[in-house]
């Protein structure tokens, strides 16, 4: 569930972020690109705790939401936030180098031919970076499914309510429910294998495309 919400959002954020970093000549874009890497360097548990700090009932924003009847920490929004934050770098990391490699000539050519910015993005930019995006989406999915630390902190681990697959594996295991733990773990492992195979297929496809350049 978290993954279903987080992956599409991260795809959009990631592509926007990458466009911003690569295509705009703006101040502080190096700082922005560092920011995108931050979740890779931070321990997920730390990320979870910082989210609690900001969005918890006594946090900076959490209090306001709580007064309006929206719970963020210990419920789905918090878990989605945690998943988004942890898996944010993957689309950005994949798309940035592809955008750089593709260059601006095709976009400029389209612009001179009269295309609007949105048309240029949908008809020119996106088709040329689509494999980078796909690769990033797959990695994001893998990371989002496998995330444990940050989500465990913000979810409150309420069985059957705020439980992700990894949290389920862990709690079943600690309750000596080995059968359930192993079954869930196997499902996750199979998904992981599928993801790795998919990534490989894409990399190969990119190689073939590359030869025609």
């Amino acid at each position: 569930m978290c993954t279903l919400i987080a992956v599409p959002l991260n795809t959009i954020f990631g592509v926007m972020f990458a466009m911003l970093v690569v295509r705009r000549r703006m101040r502080g874009r190096n700082f922005f690109s560092l920011f995108a890497d931050l979740p890779l360097a931070l321990s997920p548990v730390v990320i979870g705790l910082s989210l609690v700090l900001v969005w918890g009932i006594h946090g900076w924003f959490g209090g306001w939401f709580f007064e309006h009847g929206i719970r963020i920490i210990f419920s789905l929004p918090g878990m989605v936030l945690a998943t988004i934050f942890v898996s944010l770098p993957f689309v950005v990391r994949e798309v940035v180098p592809v955008l750089r490699a593709v260059g601006t000539e095709q976009e400029e050519a389209a612009e001179v031919l009269g295309a609007s910015p949105s048309r240029i993005f949908w008809r020119i930019t996106l088709p040329s970076i689509k494999w980078g995006v796909a690769y990033g989406v797959i990695l994001t999915t893998a990371r989002a499914l496998g995330e444990y630390g940050a989500v465990a902190v913000v979810s409150g681990r309420m069985t059957g309510q705020t439980e992700t697959a990894t949290i389920f594996v862990d709690s079943q295991w600690t309750q000596f429910n080995e059968e359930a733990a192993f079954t869930a773990a196997l499902v996750l492992a199979v998904i992981a294998v599928i993801v790795v195979v998919a990534v490989n297929l894409i990399v190969r496809k990119e190689d073939i495309d590359g030869h025609h350049r």
């Binding site: 000539e105 095709q106 400029e108 050519a109 612009e111 009269g114």
Partner: peptide, 20 residues
């Protein structure tokens, strides 16, 4: 004016062909 309103044709050194 923006490039698209100028009525110019532009040819680039590396073709800038739309590859797809």
């Amino acid at each position: 004016d923006r490039p698209r309103d100028r009525g110019v044709g532009f040819v680039f050194q590396h073709y800038a062909a739309f590859r797809h």
